[in-house]
Design a protein around this nucleic acid. Sequence first.
DNA 1: ACCTGAACACCGTTCAAGT
DNA 2: ACCTGAACACCGTTCAAGT
Lengths: 231, 231
Amino acid sequence: MADRTKVVSRRMRPAKSPLSLEVIISTALDVLAKDGTAGLSLRRVATALDTGPASLYVYLENLDELHALMVDQALAAVRLPKAGGASRRPWSSRLKALLRSYFSTLCKRPGLAELALSTIACGPNSIRIWERLLDLLKEGGVDDTRAAWGVDLLTLYVTAIAAEQSHPDAKVDGLSRVKKALSTVSADAFPLVFAFREALTSGSGEARSDWALDVIIGGIAAQPRTKDDNP
Amino acid sequence: MADRTKVVSRRMRPAKSPLSLEVIISTALDVLAKDGTAGLSLRRVATALDTGPASLYVYLENLDELHALMVDQALAAVRLPKAGGASRRPWSSRLKALLRSYFSTLCKRPGLAELALSTIACGPNSIRIWERLLDLLKEGGVDDTRAAWGVDLLTLYVTAIAAEQSHPDAKVDGLSRVKKALSTVSADAFPLVFAFREALTSGSGEARSDWALDVIIGGIAAQPRTKDDNP
DNA sequence: ACCTGAACACCGTTCAAGT
DNA sequence: ACCTGAACACCGTTCAAGT
């Protein structure tokens, strides 16, 4: 018979790391990677940490805060291009490179983009990215208000398209709901949608996102200057 | 004493309307209006209809489908401008008018924009809107692939900004989380974010959305034609 | 201070049974 | 065919109690 008086608490065992905000966040990201958005819950994270759900409330206010922290943690992987005039590449191509990295970071972990869309990320990593975006837009001669709004427009759009891309979308019979709906459109009622039914769902996320970035960046750059024109 | 043998089932009472997809959707929209996104659940909708949650599954596959139906129902209110060359207004201003109506429709009911962002709306009302958007973009000389992608870009962006605008955002002490985060940014570490901290959250949703539509529409229109250039 | 079990007030969905 | 109560397997959050 095993000596049951010698059994020690699981908490004491060497492999058991102590709780901290860091391990909670990285465990949550693991849970997200394994179980997807639908499977991500405080209780699952707690279970993965071998504790009860109440323990996490020492470190977190609520689930929303965990979501925001997860997104910010993930955004640490976004690569920032050289700032200032140090580079020979034009500002717009460095801007695109940054946003492409932003996009692929959100796409790397399934469910992350959805998360980013539902919370407002404003942690240190977000702010680091905003700083560089402002820098690049200013280098492009964009005036202050437009630059600020441009940061919002660009990050919002990249996040939204990443989320759309990685959406589970309740695949029915292997077809997405959109394709299903498009396949039943009548040519009489909606001739253009019918004619464009292929184009509406064509193209990879990357190609579409790249095109959209060109559109938005081009559009921002073409905006008339409000202040610093000739007097 | 009341004669309890005379009591009839509640179902029999005249005021009780029979279940149908229509009443379920409109009741769900009522629940959304009253209780917000967080309070919207199948069970609440069922309770509002004076029935059990299981009853709804006769009409719905799942909650996601209800969300999609709610969004499509709400999009019926989007006003479409005149098609073709019938109008004297330029195509871009009619396009903007449509998207402004789209934006304000999503903003009218709190929580609706959030819903629209989390489901892929592709019901009859969405398709009706796509048709007109394609029409307007073609009138603007936008080539086919760009027009199709443009529909996606424009609707996605309008939805995203409406959702951002109407986000509850866990107001802390009356300040939004973003403003809170911005107020603690150090001028040394992030000089531009610090300098732009007002501009980053300034402007009404309408003003920002209007500007963004100008940027996007201008950007799409400025795109080089791929096919119908000189040979 | 940190951690926890148990409880509270909810969820979406299924299923067997009723009409 | 339409509707339902009850159950199943979950949720986020709180709280009193432990260390």
